[in-house]
Design a protein around this nucleic acid. Structure first.
Lengths: 227, 227
DNA sequence: CACTCCTGTAGGAAGTTCCTACACCGCTAA
DNA sequence: TTAGCGGTGTAGGAACTTCCTACAGGAGTG
């Protein structure tokens, strides 16, 4: 298979954030989480998956050839713990950015240990996916990300909703209920194009990329409000 | 908020599979998995999320008002085990289809217990997401799904790849490396439309819906072949 | 030999994304 | 008070994707 030389021009309309491709290696035991996370992550076209494995040992073996720039690794693996593996990996390649996924929220003490070890960020499994992805992109060029992994339980969502204008909320509502754009336009008495404009604005304001995010957001918002 | 009456016509081009909307309730402890699974699931527009919670008790409380047709519930919850919760839920509403997510592969013995309890299917966290989603849609109308949760470790992927024709493989390869359609067309010396046709055919053959699935598939295929 | 299936090729309709435009309104700074 | 700025309601254009249809030629098969 002849390798594909990456065209000098970026492939998105504009390759906005940071440098070049994010070369990702993922180490997670359970397929379900790994798969669904990867589907999520691979939606971003600056990510290139260079490898994945279930165990720490397999990871160390493959890292030599896979040359990732970011390693996403679970804390608890079958054969080892992620911290140990990460340390080994960092010993070989200190410029690797490691993002650790912990099973539980991280205490300040543990966080300090991780940072000491050269890990760039820690995300717990109790955090939203977007948090993971945001962190992933954040650390991609070597920055350390000490997230707000303690604060803001939900208010962020509320604030985001407040930021929507009246018309935007109507559209968000209707879109979240899966009413087709066509019908939304009809119902509001405006053109499809206008609805699309609202959609764009909503997505920008909330930082979303696809419909499921909006649906989930709206669902949770109503719930948070209703109870 | 005035409720939106669902239009009598389906919203996809054709509402192919089965009945009406799949009303889903999800109970999972960890936000990361729940979120990423939901994003995945909500990509399918016949799914309507009617609620979610982290604990068994919260689930039982909300089931009364949420009236889901399918309950997706983790086996191990913070406060209870999924089986117990499911039994309670089924006692109230026997027509509910329950899909249990177990942490480990399910033995035949355990499977029997689950079926006995009225659970429609069990998926373990070691299985691929697609398996979960397939199962979800399968049980939605009350069928029991006793998956092939023991066999075929990987060969399915191999077979699927075999099914692609030469040209299709080329295109799949290039698409998986994120080369834009335009460039693929140029490289192969055919029109963009033709490339789209290949893309469609590939996706149909492999049963995929979006690019990340293909990327992952190709990555794994090469890996499986390379090692 | 006729029939059917697969493969390579492509077109059309409708929908989506991304970007731009513009009028209006309210607020602020000079 | 007027000029400017930012947000809101509205919409258009270009480019791209998705879904569906079409068709010719080869391979296999009854």
């Amino acid at each position: 298979m002849s390798s594909i030389e990456s065209p000098s021009a970026g492939q998105g309309r504009l390759m906005a954030s940071g440098q070049r491709r994010l070369r990702l290696y993922v180490t997670m035991g359970q397929r379900l989480l790994r798969d669904s996370l990867l589907f999520q992550i691979l939606l971003h076209d600056e990510v290139e998956l260079v490898g994945e494995s279930e165990t720490g040992v397999a990871t160390l073996n493959r890292l030599k050839t896979a040359t990732p720039s970011v390693l996403l690794i679970e804390e608890n693996l079958q054969d080892n713990d992620g911290l140990t593996i990460a340390e080994h990996a960092l010993a070989v390649n200190p410029s690797l950015s490691v993002l650790l996924i912990s099973d539980t929220p991280v205490s300040n003490g543990r966080m300090a240990i991780y940072l000491e070890a050269g890990i760039k960020a820690v995300v717990s499994k109790d955090q939203p996916v977007q948090e993971l992805i945001k962190t992933l992109f954040y650390i991609r060029n070597g920055q350390v990300y000490v997230g707000n992994w303690q604060q803001e339980p939900a208010p962020a969502a509320m604030l985001a909703y407040q930021a929507l204008s009246g018309r935007e909320r109507e559209v968000a509502q209707l879109m979240a209920s899966r009413l087709p754009v066509r019908d939304i336009a009809g119902r509001l008495g405006v053109s499809c194009k206008t609805v699309h404009s609202y959609k764009d604005r909503i997505f920008v304001k909330l930082g979303f990329e696809r419909l499921p995010e909006l649906i989930l957001f709206m669902q949770r918002h109503q719930h948070g409000a209703a109870e």
